[in-house]
Every structure is written in structure tokens, then in C-alpha cells.
Design a protein around this nucleic acid. Sequence first.
DNA 1: CGACTGGTATGAGGGAAGCTCAGAAATACT
DNA 2: AGTATTTCTGAGCTTCCCTCATACCAGTCG
Lengths: 223, 223
Amino acid sequence: MVTKRQKLEEKETRILAAARDVFVEFGFEKGRMAEIAKRAGVAEGTVYLYYQTKKDLVRAVLEQYWARLTREALEALPEGSNTFDQLQAFARFHLSAFHRDIDYINMNVAARTAHQDFEVPMERVRDYVRVFDQLFERGKDRGEIRTTVPTWVARDMFFGTLEHTARSTLSDDNKDPEAATANLIALFQAGYTDEAPEKTAELAPLVQRLEAAVARLDDLTSS
Amino acid sequence: MVTKRQKLEEKETRILAAARDVFVEFGFEKGRMAEIAKRAGVAEGTVYLYYQTKKDLVRAVLEQYWARLTREALEALPEGSNTFDQLQAFARFHLSAFHRDIDYINMNVAARTAHQDFEVPMERVRDYVRVFDQLFERGKDRGEIRTTVPTWVARDMFFGTLEHTARSTLSDDNKDPEAATANLIALFQAGYTDEAPEKTAELAPLVQRLEAAVARLDDLTSS
DNA sequence: CGACTGGTATGAGGGAAGCTCAGAAATACT
DNA sequence: AGTATTTCTGAGCTTCCCTCATACCAGTCG
């Protein structure tokens, strides 16, 4: 027995799936409401009973997308390794996701720029961004990352670099995306590592040798 | 005496200026061809004699914009200072230009995403990007930047970070853009500096003390 | 079983915007 | 002055998002 509510939800799902396919295939601007209705097997007017505008429809598609991406990201992170390894894994994931889902990304951008009032499903995007924030701040807690670095600065650098790199490597086969992620993490390590202990550790053997030599010298000269 | 050619060019200029104003005020999508024609003082059909489509028109506007930006950037660079200072000056310039010209930037993005076949005036953009490339490669020539870093990797990081930062600082007054540029350049310095001389310099006093001590030791043991 | 009622679906049509094109106007040429 | 050519015009065509009067459907009651 299929309840009335189930039937409605099933139709809503079908419309959303059709919208997703059409927007991915044609993009937001060129994706036609008529085509979405046709693929969902309903009349054009019916679509508007479920989603008030084309904008709302693309928002729903994107909401689904970001939620999925967050799930995938969490799965892609190696457990228990150090912060920079995890950041690198996340960077690799993000870059390849952008390559794979460039249609969604463009849809996102198109919807945002087409309507200055358009709000990307911010909640879902924030969930995704939080994956980075949490990694980074745990790095601070663990003493692996200098606490003086504002997280937002690193975050903007992380996502900005990767988004730009994704587009640039997509249009030029000679560029190796791996070089970009490796570079990003190397710079993070060079610039964000809490260096004090490391430097001390690096110099310690030298200092020890020096002091041992001086001690021997003192011994000899005093005797 | 005004030649026919001059009259035509004057009209073309007027249309372009009107288009620029309208696109800046309303954005690419919401900017109406009718409004552009009205402001240029010509009929709507006339616009299409000079620019075949709305897309061509925005392309011409953007071409002008990028050319102007390149000129301004070159003027903003301090002469003769070291590479990282120049990069920082360029980063500051770029960030504030993005703030000031966010309408142009959005126009650019809107035009690109609205028509998947749209080509931003690549030549002019390349000219602008070359400002960075030249700074960076001169840094390599001078031995200030490690030559193993591919320029494109640093370039994507530079522009990606700044574009993302520009948007994020625009929508959140608590964020200080200066922190972002300073951070970017600090990371570049930490990660890209040709470190060999610096490390040697850092260790020099220690090594000297060590060698002096060894010398004294040798003196004593041989005598 | 038939009438009624509230929710759901339909698709022709409204409105808006980019673009076209037949004819008008301006300019150049003889 | 008359003709040919170039330039300009704006009503109207097309496309697309969205609306709304109408039709359909599934329960419910007499």
C-alpha cells in the first residue's frame, strides 16, 4: 500500500533527480524547465507546485550535492595520521572532487552570479568547510600548527588555491594536480609548523658536540 | 572636420561606455540591452551593428578592464625592491582592486558561466597574470626563489588565494585583508626562499665556535 | 451509487528580454 | 539633383520562466 504522502514524495524526488540531470548536462542557464518537467514525467506547471522557482530547484540540487560531498570527504580522510597528512589527503580529495563535479561547481557559481540575491545552501557548504576547520584547529591543539595563524586565513588560502588550481589543471593537461597539492601542503608545513621545538631539536646535536669539546678543552687547559 | 571613421568610432565608444555603466550597475544578467541603447542614445538595433551579441559587448567591456588593471598594477609596484616585497605590493594591489572592482569580476564570472563557450578576453588576462610571472621568475634569476618551484603552481596559489580572500573579506568585516596578504607572502618566503645561504648564515656562529674550540684542542694535543 | 469537496495536475498563455529585418533616413557619388 | 550605398530604426519574432483557469482524482457523505 502506497500512502498519499509517499506518492507525493516520490514525485518530488523524481523532479529533483530530473533537475539534477538537466542542470548537470546543460548548466543552470541553458537547462530548461520544460526539459526537467518532461524527464520527470509531469507537466511544466507541476514542477512549480514543488519548487517555486528555477532558483529554488537548483538550490535543492546543490543542497544535496554539498551534503554528499561532505560525507565523501569524511570517508576519504585517513584516521589518526598527523595533521599535515590529513590536510594533504583532504586537498587531494577536494581537487579531484572539483574535477569530477565541475558541472555542479559551475552550476553553483552560475546560480550565485545570476541572482545577486541567491544564497547557495550556506548551511551545507559550511558543513563542508568545517571539515578543514576542524582538521586545522586540531592541529593547533596538538601543537603541530602555530596558534597565531587565524584559521580563516589558512582556509581561504586552502580553498582558493585548490579551486583555482582545479580550473587551471582542467584546461591544461601538462599541469600535474599532484604538484599543486604537494606544494600547498609543503608551504603550510614550512610556514605554519610550530617551529620552536624543531629548531631546538635540529641544533641540539651541534650544541652538544660544541659543549663537549669545550669541556674537554677546559679539562686539558686546567690540568 | 570630423571624418566618417571618427564618427563611427565615437558612436562605438559611446555604446561601449554605456554598456560598461549598465553592466557595472546591474550585472551581466540583469543589464538590459534596451537600457544600454537608451544610454548610448541609439536604437536597440544599432547596438547590434557594432556588437553582434550581448556576450560580445561584455567581452569588449572586460577587455578594456583588464588592460586598465594591468597598467595600474605596473604603476603600483615599487621599483628595485626585493622580490618578496614586490610580490606583497602586488598582492595588496590585487586584493584592493578586487574589492573596488567586484562588479567587473562578477561580470566576468557571470559571462563565463552563462555561456560555456564564452571566452574571457584571454589575451588581456594573460597580460595581467604575466605581471606575477615576471616578478616570480626574476626572483628565481636573482637566487631569491628556489628554481624547483613551477611558476604555475605559485601563480595558481597566488591568484586563487587572493580571489577567495577578496570575497570572504568583503562579506565579513571582522576579517582584515592585510592579514591575508601578509600570510600569503610569509608562506611564500618560508617555502620558496632558496634556503641554503640563510641556513648557513644561521649556523655560522655555532660552527665558528666549534671550529675554534677544535683548533685549540688540536694545538694542545699536538704540543 | 451519485453528488460533493479539497487537494493535485495540466498546458495554453502572459510577460520579459535578446535579437532580427524590412523599411526609413542619412550620406556619398556622379 | 538624382541615384546608390551605407547606416539606423523600432515593431515584432522567438524563447523561456512562470501563472492561472480549468480539469482530474480520491476520498466522504447522503
